[in-house]
Amino acid sequence: MATRLVEVQNLKKWFPIKGGVFGATIASVKAVDEVSFFINQGETLSLVGESGSGKTTTGRTMLKLLQPTGGKIIYKGKDITNLTPNQMRPLRRNMQIMFQDPYGSLNPRMPVGDIIQEPLDVHSIGTRKERRQAVATMMETVGLRPEYEKRYPHEFSGGQRQRIGVARALVINPELLVLDEPISALDVSIQSQIINLLQELQQRLDLTYLFIAHDLAVVRHMSDRVAVMYLGKIVETAENDELFDHPLHPYTQALLSAVPVPDPEVKRERIILQGDVPSPVNPPSGCHFRTRCPYAMPICKEQEPLVIEVAPGHTAACHLLTKK
């Protein structure tokens, strides 16, 4: 059995809304609400869901870039939930993140070589010469010419900048890499380049990915397992093919039916969801999805559905499944 690299149990991240005369907390945005999942060593877990479902917040909270409101984060069997930033520092070598925005994620006043070298500086790895060498090697690995190290980020294209982002994340040999929509801001032709690069690097460096995305075609191509998020909760988790072939949760089914099929002959049922995602400040009672669910029943309003294991490795949270 594969070893678990990281496990998240009932993770919560609520953002307080301050108001009133004394700045008291009057409500909370429940961006991530009781989320549990695990990632095995060397695999890719994809986190999908529409905008505002809490995918990004989950990724950042897992890395402790945001302090969780509740729940547990277990990294290699060690509870890291309540570590201070200073205690986290040595662990940051092993877990890195790559960002969505190729423009905002690189300091515009820093030469690219310095940007990539910074993790080595922070963790005092190697001598100055070794660091320079590591940067040059890394730049070559991600397909950038090492001569470019003196250039500034604005001199690169979006795809090249994402390569710089990859290089910065990988230069200290992390085990876990959170990919926060790494391709959403790129042209389609560049997207495939970056995806191929990420897959190649994963095999070569034995990396573990948490891949956050909303492009389901890419998710199917990339992942070993997929978790579907809706309004701060994971509604379904399964192996890649299992999820795409036998989606159980109505939300997953609706999501998958929105993926275009490149064969005009194929007729299939389109599930079109009505309305908008409810506010995470005040989510619906019971099942969060019931307001838009085509199969909503009275019980959905009263009880929150439990996560049940339908098949080995395939879990979902829906009352339809409990009834059977």
Partner: peptide, 8 residues
């Protein structure tokens, strides 16, 4: 945030 993720 990237700098914080590095551990700076």
């Amino acid at each position: 945030e990237a700098a914080r993720a590095i551990g700076a």
